[in-house]
Nucleic acid binder design. Structure first.
Length: 505
RNA sequence: GCCCCCAUCGUCUAGCGGCCUAGGACAUCGCCCUUUCAAGGCGACGGCGGGGAUUCGAAUUCCCCUGGGGGCACCA
């Protein structure tokens, strides 16, 4: 069975290359970019890029009450952050605009007039009350709610008269009888019976246009070849296909991907925690990790690889390998991937990334400290937001007597160990000695200790407590390197003084 | 209620009639490494929803059931 059923030849140029694929991502600017929408955008992007096609961004702001320009701006910003830049959209003209539905009403109106003229649509004067009652009755009878076509066969004169009398009317589409089917790129063949579809509204009494209709006018007008969207639109497809036929426009191919579910199997929502891209970004998830995770959520190229850059995803992406079943959002796996990406960063880059998070918690690192601290905490980080928690030890003041681990210093020979490090550092040098140097210093201390029969834990535990007051933290050499020579000496002195006073007491 | 879609470890998935004693990853647990926390290495646990049918042979094909998801608006 051929898996390249989405291939279309461009007949005009002899089919020498794949047709110019055009996909669109069409968010409503009624909120921020949701994790689910981001995945839809990603699949569109991957598909378009894989086929050297174009992705257009269309803003579906038909609902003027809920749509806001600031949301449009934030959605675009979030897409850019993910690396998903549309080739055409409100901010990049590609000759198929305008790219906001609110600016396309003339096009919708034209289409409605055409449908009215060709008999594919008709005016409906039914009131909301009548429609509500009708629906109630049908439901009570166990039938599927569906418009009963009361207004279908009015004469032209009647219609004109009622319109002239000022009666409000909607325009309905006259749903043709028969089956509608299409070959979904992900699901395969899907068929609907027109019996279950009522004559739906194209234009509302307030002059606004219905989603299912506007989408078709737009996709046709923008020469969209492939519609990649969520499964929640699968039933809309039947209506839209009918409209293409009525408008005499070629229909695009469809790919309906599954939805993302929460850990409880329900639709992913706020109660499951963070759901917007912005929230993840703010917590310190990396764009690459989020993209990688989202791609793997219901898609896999086969093989055992788990890590893919956006470019690699583009190269590997294959719509026929997108899973049909819904996927549960698994924060654990995202966390793992994010940690993986963080660990692969260079310490200079990590320093940069982590800086605002440290700043926010009032942690200001000295110039020479930054990269050392980054390297020290790198393997502990799941998200950048974790940084202050681990970096704090490098800047915090220490009151040794307050430490709950004081008794570690009470062991035999501790004063000697501390004195050795003191000695090794007292010679002077960089305030923040390079890690290699710190390692050498500690080696020197350890060697000297060995001669006195002290080793392992007996060396390192007291040093750690004397330097930080804690029994856990970064590798000791990172502390020696990143804490600052003068501060270390101060702390060793303080510990030594403490031991001294304790001994003489 | 009606229509549509889906169904492999807890989770994401590989699998497209024999390579399956069902592979990988996350999570969990254990061991190792290690001065601590991590990271890393090794290992363990764990799954084809149920029932029929086709076939020499079914996780893979077909039917029914069950379960889950989505849709049925003058929302998008």
């Amino acid at each position: 069975m051929p898996r390249d059923r989405f291939r279309r030849e461009t007949s005009e140029d002899g089919g020498s290359h794949m047709s110019d694929v055009r996909v669109r991502f069409a968010p409503s600017p009624t909120g921020t970019l949701h994790i689910g929408s981001a995945r839809t955008a990603l699949y569109n992007f991957l598909f378009a890029r894989h086929h050297q096609g174009v992705m257009v961004l269309r803003v579906e702001d038909t609902d003027l009450k809920r749509s806001r320009r600031e949301h449009e701006v934030s959605i675009i910003r979030d897409l850019h952050w993910l690396g998903l830049r549309a080739d055409e959209g409100p901010d990049v003209d590609g000759g198929y605009g305008p790219y906001r539905q609110s600016e396309r009403t003339a096009l919708y109106e034209d289409g409605v007039q055409r449908l009215l003229e060709t008999g594919w649509a008709y005016r409906c004067f039914c009131t909301q009350e009548r429609l509500d009652a009708l629906k109630r009755e049908q439901l009570a009878r166990g039938e599927m709610p569906k418009y009963d076509r009361l207004c279908l066969n009015q004469s032209l004169e009647t219609v004109r008269a009622r319109l002239r009398a000022g009666e409000e009317a909607t325009v309905r589409f006259k749903v043709p009888a028969g089956d509608v089917s299409f070959d979904d790129l992900i699901h395969g063949p899907i068929t609907f019976s027109a019996d279950v579809i009522g004559d739906f509204i194209l234009r509302r009494t307030d002059g606004g246009f219905a989603y299912n209709y506007a989408v078709v006018v737009d996709d046709a007008g923008m020469k969209i070849t492939h519609v990649v969207r969520g499964e929640d639109h699968i039933t809309n497809t039947a209506r839209q296909l009918m409209l293409y036929r009525a408008l005499d426009e070629p229909a695009p191919a469809y790919a309906h991907h599954s939805l993302i579910l929460g850990p409880d199997g329900g639709k992913l929502s706020k109660r499951h925690g963070a759901t917007s891209i912005g929230e993840f970004r703010d917590m310190g998830y990396l764009a690459g990790a989020v993209v990688n995770y989202l791609a793997l959520l219901s898609w896999h190229p086969g093989g055992e690889r788990e890590k893919f850059t956006l470019e690699e995803l583009v190269a590997e992406f294959d719509m026929s390998r997108v899973s049909k079943s819904p996927a549960v959002f698994d924060l654990d796996k995202l966390n793992w991937l994010n940690g993986l990406y963080i660990r692969e960063m260079g310490s200079a880059e990590l320093s940069e990334q982590v800086r605002p998070y440290l700043h926010e918690e009032g942690i200001a690192l000295a110039e020479g400290q930054r990269d050392i601290v980054s390297a020290a905490i790198q393997s502990n980080l799941v998200v950048l937001e974790d940084a202050p928690r681990y970096a704090r030890v490098f800047v915090e003041e220490l009151s040794l007597p307050a430490s709950v681990h004081l008794e570690v210093l009470h062991e035999e020979g501790v004063a000697g160990v501390l004195a050795l490090l003191r000695e090794a550092l007292a010679g002077g040098g960089d305030e923040y000695p390079p890690v290699e140097e710190a390692k050498a210093i500690l080696k020197q201390v350890a060697d000297a200790c060995k001669d006195k029969g002290i080793k392992g834990k007996a060396i390192y535990k007291p040093l750690r407590v004397a330097l930080t007051g804690l029994d856990q933290g970064p590798e000791l050499f990172y502390l020696v390197s990143g804490l600052g020579r003068s501060r270390i000496l101060e702390r060793l002195d303080a510990a030594l003084t403490y031991l001294d006073e304790r001994g003489s007491a």
